[in-house]
Structure formats: structure tokens, C-alpha cells
């Protein structure tokens, strides 16, 4: 009789409990009605059960989003934990939807649930992937855009983990700037 490896019998608890949200692009309903929480989880095994069960980001319809946020934080600017924050934003071109989007999103999820941002993990609220015909977007949301050093460290870790080449820069925008932007893009508060 073989004794199973106890590592495989226990679920591995995460530092935080996380919720996956799905935004459906249904123009007959208002924005809030289209945003639904899929489920929340707090173990590695439950994360994979969920991840393996849902469509990859590249296969959801244009106009839709996935978000993964710490349980209790809603994936919107208005949430108390987001409203003074901002996002590290990665813009992807059409070719990258097939080549890189899914691996970027999975890597981002692994950074969140594995607490890869270390001391800055408390600054991180969640991540969003927006599927759009004009170009997909992936972002990490932090809760305080005035925390310069912590914000920079989150950006550097993200760029490093996604293997983004040195000569490509990514920018951080405060939600307050995005909300009040005059043109099509908000100014970058930081770049890495």
C-alpha cells in the first residue's frame, strides 16, 4: 500500500482571498449590471480549478473584461481602496492577442496569488484584462498613486515577470487622471 504524498492531499492556502470578476459587454444593460463576480478562492488548488474552468482571456468576446481583485475590493475606480490609486498599463496590439495575451494574464495572476510583489503586495488591489478590438489592455491596480517608491517597485516587478524587453516602457496612470483626461490617454505619473 503506497502512502500518498501529504503535499498532494492538502490545499495550499493563499495569503489573500481573491475574487475573479467578469464584465460582459451587453449594451442593453448599464455598466454595473454587466459586472459580475464569478467566484472567490483562497487556495492554490481552487485557483487552478477556476482557471482551468473558464475561457482564456484571448477567447472572451471583444468588449469583455476579466478582473482579479482582493476579496472585498470591487474592480472599479469608485471603490474606497481604488479611488486614490492607479494602474500600471500594458497596451497590446492585435498580434499579441494570439501570441502573448494569455501568458501575460496568467503570469499576472500568478504574481498576485503568489504575492510576488513582496512588501508591495499590500499596495496592490488587483489586475484587469480588457479585450478590445482596438487593442487589448492589461493592468495592475494599486491603491495609492502617491506612494512613489512602492509604485515603482510594483512596475519593475511586473515588467520583469512578464519579460518585457528593456527598450519597451510601460506607464503608470492615476485613476484620477484617467477619469478627467482630456485626450484619449491619461498622462503617465511613472514609467519603467
Amino acid at each position: 500500500v503506497s502512502i500518498p504524498d501529504p503535499e498532494l492531499l492538502i490545499k495550499h492556502p493563499l495569503h489573500n482571498r481573491w475574487a475573479l470578476w467578469y464584465f460582459k459587454n451587453d449594451k442593453t444593460k448599464d455598466w454595473h449590471a454587466n459586472l459580475k463576480v464569478v467566484t472567490a478562492f483562497d487556495t492554490v488548488e481552487d485557483f487552478w480549478a477556476l482557471y482551468n474552468h473558464v475561457l482564456p482571456a484571448s477567447k472572451i468576446a471583444p468588449g469583455c473584461d476579466y478582473s482579479l481583485f482582493k476579496d472585498g475590493i470591487q474592480p472599479m475606480w469608485e471603490d474606497e481602496r481604488n479611488k486614490r490609486g492607479g494602474r500600471w498599463l500594458i497596451n497590446l496590439n492585435k498580434r499579441q492577442r494570439n501570441m502573448e495575451l494569455d501568458s501575460f494574464w496568467l503570469e499576472t495572476l500568478l504574481c498576485l496569488i503568489g504575492e510576488a510583489f513582496e512588501e508591495q503586495s499590500d499596495d496592490v488591489c488587483g489586475a484587469v484584462v480588457n479585450i478590445r478590438n482596438k487593442g487589448d489592455k492589461l493592468s495592475i491596480w494599486t491603491h495609492d498613486a502617491t506612494r512613489n517608491e512602492a509604485t515603482m517597485r510594483v512596475g519593475r516587478t511586473l515588467k520583469d515577470r512578464l519579460n518585457i524587453p528593456r527598450d519597451i516602457t510601460i506607464g503608470f496612470q492615476a485613476h484620477s487622471d484617467t477619469m478627467t483626461k482630456a485626450g484619449s490617454t491619461a498622462k503617465n505619473r511613472f514609467v519603467v
Binding site: 498532494l8 490545499k11 495550499h12 492556502p13 493563499l14 495569503h15 492554490v44 488548488e45 487552478w48 480549478a49 482557471y51 482551468n52 503570469e107 500568478l110 496569488i113 503568489g114 504575492e115 510576488a116 513582496e118 503586495s121 515577470r161
Partner: peptide
């Protein structure tokens, strides 16, 4: 302390406990 997992460990568990 913070419960941290590196990517290799997380990936290793992707199909490990499907029956749980």
C-alpha cells in the same frame, strides 16, 4: 509572515489536485 509561492511551485500544482 506573508504566504508566498513562486511561479514554478504554482505551475506544478495546476493539475495536481483535480480530484479535490
Amino acid at each position: 509572515g506573508k504566504k508566498q509561492y513562486d511561479r514554478a511551485f504554482l505551475l506544478q500544482l495546476q493539475f495536481a489536485n483535480e480530484s479535490l
